[in-house]
Design a protein around this nucleic acid. Structure first.
Lengths: 225, 225, 225, 225
DNA sequence: AATGAATGAGTATTCATTCAT
DNA sequence: GATGAATGAATACTCATTCAT
């Protein structure tokens, strides 16, 4: 297939169908153990058609990864309260991510391929890198505001992103005994605790009612900043 | 090869040589991209000899994983100050793990295969499970002693183990800009912050001079315990 | 390949071509000594194509065996005079088999694999078993009619089927000095002699002119029956 | 190993042990499916030792085949009544063979390899050829004496030998419902019927009491001879 | 767009045989 | 005689990708 082929509406549908089937199979059996023929069979079309819509198996994976990444970012964006303080926003993002990943588990299972196939390190790392950059910015903000302890912002951000992925993975692989909403709260708490400058701030940022730490702890913050 | 073959000293040496070569290659190129022939070539022996010492490629991997797991546990054990309080011990273990994993990077890269090949989920998960159980016990101790915040011990333990692996992975994959000793300290701090019941305890457990939190904060601990 | 693939006419042709090539090679060199690559080379196609049409080498063999079995039965059916008495029919079947096996020697050589590969015992034994059952029915008829000596019908049938295969084998392996038509007559005679209730009946059943023993020896048969 | 090595008594014992183990394994799994290592393991010795006693696997098989052939001939010789008429002797030989083959089933299973491996056609065919020659001589005698119908002696002899092998094979492969002694008698009867010049002779030769047809039917024989 | 056919590089594993001690 | 180690040729099967209709 060429770069930009114009696909008819029917064509787009077929392509999406193939993407969906592939996503399901990849999630079920993993990338390597899903053969092109499995995908086309699941979609009920002939083998040759696969290459009408995708350059190759690898490209399909990349498209899929891209799509998933977009969805995640969108969902994170929606979950974050723009008026809240950085730490709270980090917590909200973390919680939202855990919830979202749980719902779209099969999709996200895919992202774990990162370590698998050296071919995909780039695509997948890219995804987390963007995420890390976002969080790192918030961390910096938080540090400046005295809400987050003064440590390497990027390292901290990596920790946040990593922890979210970690617990999502546990949940996905059936090793989490607690219900998803509880797990999300736990992760939010965990993240806040890891970052918070002190106990009081941690408490505030964990309290769902308190939309803005700054507001409630202004005195103290003013003093410490 | 069958069950328990009796190997001559020379044989044992040869076997270890194959294990070493395999470990290096797996680390360099990954499991799937390392062919049996690559391993024997690296060892400078004939293809057939591989099957004299190992049932197949998979078994070799399992032996390797087992070996690595053992080493890790041993190194952790050595790093922990038995007289220290649980939280400090967790920190020490975490720091030691990060350091150890950094030194033996090629080895531990292997353990990341967990997500890769569904065949190995068992072996590899086993390794972390043991580790998690150990840490969970310390967490419980810490909670009882009022050093660690009151949260699900297993979930907390998973976080600790996960974070260690996380940062080791970053370091291994060249995304850590800081030197290893600094990273280890960072991780120790991170873990302590995640778990500590309050700021003061966190501070104590992070202070390397203070071997035992219990000693310096005995009054407080005694009161809350 | 999976279950029931729909093959285009061209595909069917190709498949038959592969079957033919395989049959020839198996006959020439034996099953084990015929590699898949030999078969595809003989057909002038790529290796992978073999697995488009057949699950594996074993399945191809089974298809081949099935095909040969069908042909044999058909030819036997055509050779037998339905109005003739059982003994004569047995003789006709035996003679026809010998002739047919001689003509299709390469094919039938394959059936001798029975003893070879334990994997194929089932397929091949099945073939003879059907044949034995058929003959046994005729033997029973013959015994009731007093044409065949009173002995275990199944054992007798096995002998008949075995003898036919035996002499065919001799002929196939170049140890028969006599021309095929003569050999067939010999086998017919041999079989009749082995089964006949008495000399006179044997004579009648061997005489090609006499279509029905019953007709010519009615008096005697009536007396002894 | 060289041609004629002088083996110590212990060495001979070891060699026989290997032969026995091989025979058992060949019978159980067939020649191809029995690996050299299986044989040495069964004997509890090291792999290398095999080649001290045998040139290779093939030679061992040949030695084994030779040994079995000898045994069979010996047993046939013992079973035959030297004073009996040719037809009776053929019958006795056939019956003895069936019995002997049944007893030494595992051994004789080996001889069926004839069709299997083209390598062994010579060794194995040799065995039957000798047997056929012996029987053919008797057949000729029988024809001259008017006991056996006038037909190609070699072809008849082949039939006799073949039938014996046939029924032995059935018995060996568990498809014979009748006890071995009964089967032997059946085969004797079958063979006699196939060969006998007429009913009366057949009857005499089948009668175990009658040691010599000549004796009881002297008048007739004298008349016809 | 869609199909079924065709390609062929790539690889783990087996096992008879030889060798050094 | 005996052992364990070492050799390497040989082969079935997979699967992404391309091709002719």
């Amino acid at each position: 297939m060429d770069d930009e082929r114009r696909l008819t509406p029917q064509g787009l549908e077929r392509k999406q169908q193939l993407l969906d089937c592939a996503a399901r199979l990849f999630a079920e059996r993993g990338y390597a153990d899903t053969r092109v023929i499995d995908i086309v069979r699941a979609a009920g079309v002939a083998k040759g058609l696969f290459y009408w819509y995708f350059e190759n198996k690898e490209q399909l994976f990349r498209e899929l990864a891209e799509e998933i990444r977009m969805r995640l970012r969108r969902s994170q964006g929606e979950a974050i309260d723009l008026d809240a303080d950085p730490l709270t926003r980090i917590r909200q993002g973390a919680e939202a991510s855990v919830r979202f990943m749980a719902i779209n588990a099969p999709f996200f299972a895919l992202l774990e391929v990162e370590n698998i196939d050296r071919r995909f390190v780039d695509v997948l790392r890219q995804g987390t890198d963007v995420h890390v950059t976002d969080v790192a910015a918030l961390v910096r903000e938080g540090i400046e505001a005295g809400l987050i302890r003064d440590d390497d912002p990027v390292l901290l951000a990596r920790g946040v992103v990593g922890i979210v992925g970690l617990y999502s993975h546990f949940h996905r692989t059936g090793r989490s005994e607690v219900p998803i909403s509880e797990l999300a709260t736990f992760v939010g708490r965990f993240v806040v605790r890891s970052l918070a400058a002190d106990d009081e701030i941690a408490l505030s940022a964990t309290n769902e009612e308190t939309r803005s730490v700054r507001a409630t702890t202004s005195g103290r913050l003013g003093g410490s900043g």
